[in-house]
Amino acid sequence: MSEPKKVSRRQFLNYTLTGLGGFMAAGMVAPMVRFAIDPVFKPSAAGEFVSVADVEELSNEPQRFEWEIEQVDAWYESKVQKTAWVYRSENDEIVALSPVCTHLGCTVDWAASEEYPNQFFCPCHAGRYTKDGVNVPGTPPTAPLPKYETKVEEGMLYLGEAIAR
């Protein structure tokens, strides 16, 4: 058995003062750090369904529809414009695609390139997607266009969140 180590007066004071100082500093800094990182812990806003179009208007050809949502950005509330490309698919499903390119976020357009009249085209780096929103291999985008949640009520088409695929 070795002799129990003696803590000198100097060591004791050093440990106590460092501990106390550390405790005080932590008490000061902790609220500020929590304050700063708060955005990470905020619950993400759940999307509401918004009436966008009359289902009668829809066809087999993708059409552009625009609508507005109320956006609450901390202390700033504003209306923000949203866009979707909507069409009826062969098996009569309603498909609503987000126009935001999955490469770097430009806005894609239906049949905007003369060479590819049956595709979505992104003007920024010539990214392309087939009609169902799947990215064409060999072009810059690496994922399909996000699909909006859809709902039909009393002949109106309602769109919710755009879900990444």
Partner: peptide, 20 residues
């Protein structure tokens, strides 16, 4: 005013940091 209200009422520990 709205940003001060927001940081005090909605942000975690906002009341403490503004209070300090």
């Amino acid at each position: 005013w709205n940003s001060v209200y927001y940081l005090q009422m909605e942000v975690a520990h906002g009341q403490i940091v503004r209070g300090m």
